Amino acid sequence: MKELKEFTIPFVGLKLGEHRFDFNIGKVFFEHFEYEDFNDVNIDLDVLLTKKTTLLEFTLNFNGFVNVQCDITNEPYDQNIDGEFHFVVKFGETYNDENEELLILPHGSHEVNIQQYVYESIVLALPIRRIHPDVENGTMKSEILDKLEELKPKIIDDAPEEGEKTDPRWDELKKLLTDK
C-alpha cells in the first residue's frame, strides 16, 4: 500500500526529548485504506514522539467522531471516538513489524510512517455494536423498530389462572422442578 506522506515523520535531526505532531483525519484517510464503513470522519490526532538515544516512543491520542450506520435501524449517527495507542520503534538489521507494539527499522533509517498504526487504532476503538443513541434511550421512531417490535417473540405464560383446573399428574411433575 502506498504511504501517505503527511504521516511520515522524519526523526533525524530532532533533539532528544519530546516532540508533538498534530493531524486532522477525515474520510479521505480511510478511503486510502479502502475502508467504507464511515459516512463521515472528523478526528483530531495528537502524536507524541519521545526520542531517546537508542529508540523512539510514540503515543497516539485521538478523539472526534465517525458517522456510521446503526446496526439495528440502519440510520446514520455520529459515534464519538477517543483512544490512545503506544508503540516503540527500535533499530535492527531488517524491517520487522510483526509485533503491534514494536516496530524495528533498519539501521540508517531516517523516518517512520505511522499511518497503519493510526488506522488500526481508530478502527479498533469503535464499539462492536453500533447502536443509535435514540434507540438506546427509546426516543427513536422508525418503521424498522416498529416491525422488530411486531415480530418479537411473545412470552407464553404457562401458569394457570385462578379457578382454572389443572391435570393433577402435571402438578406432581411440577413439584420435581421445585424440589432440590
Rank of each mutant, 00 (worst) to 15 (best):
F58V: 02
I104S: 07
N137E: 14
M140Q: 08
E164Q: 15
P76W: 06
P10G: 00
E111L: 02
G138C: 05
I81D: 06
E84A: 05
E149Y: 02
L148F: 10
F38P: 01
D44T: 11
H19M: 00
F23R: 00
C70F: 01
P153L: 01
D46F: 12
D167P: 08
E34F: 13
Y119M: 12
N24K: 14
F21V: 00
D82T: 10
I128M: 14
E75H: 07
Q116C: 01
L45I: 03
S142W: 09
K5N: 11
E31F: 13
D37M: 11
T54H: 11
V41L: 14
L145N: 01
S109W: 01
P168I: 05
V88I: 15
N42K: 13
K175I: 04
N42Y: 09
K141C: 03
L16W: 02
A159Q: 10
I72Q: 09
N63D: 12
F33T: 08
L4C: 01
V112R: 03
V89C: 08
H110K: 14
E36K: 14
H132N: 15
E93M: 07
L56I: 01
H110C: 03
K51H: 03
D82A: 13
P153N: 02
E143K: 15
S121K: 06
P106T: 10
L126R: 05
F11G: 09
K141F: 00
S121D: 03
T139C: 04
F30R: 04
K51W: 05
D44M: 10
Q79E: 12
T139D: 10
D22Y: 14
I43H: 06
K180P: 00
D37V: 09
E149S: 12
G138E: 01
V47R: 02
D179Y: 04
H107R: 09
F21Q: 00
S121A: 15
D157C: 05
L60P: 07
V47H: 02
V12S: 08
E75Y: 11
M1T: 09
S109E: 10
N24Y: 02
D82S: 13
F85K: 09
P153I: 01
P127K: 13
L126K: 04
W170F: 15
E136G: 03
P133F: 02
Q69Y: 12
V47Y: 03
D179L: 10
K52W: 00
H86I: 00
L177I: 04
